[in-house]
Amino acid sequence: MSPHHDARLPLAFIPPGEEVRLAGLGDEIDALQREQLTAYGLAENRPLRVLQQKPMTVILAEEVELALEHSVARHIWVVR
């Protein structure tokens, strides 16, 4: 794995309160749901703030608050 990839972390592992940037959406996420996430504003390089991780991952993307199941958040790659 390249150093670039080493820096990428799954969104589900980021503690609440941290701000990260979106690095990519994993292929494991269903194509339709990937489109849906992009439409919500989850595009590469956009900043995201993690609000909480339990019972679901809740993030703030611009001013859109989104709740995501961990099964989805595990395949969303972010960089600090």
């Binding site: 849906q36 919500y40 709740a67 199941e69 099964s71």
Partner: peptide, 10 residues
């Protein structure tokens, strides 16, 4: 089953 992804309006 489709995992939940939902917007939380203000």
């Amino acid at each position: 089953r489709i995992p939940l992804v939902t917007e939380l309006p203000p």
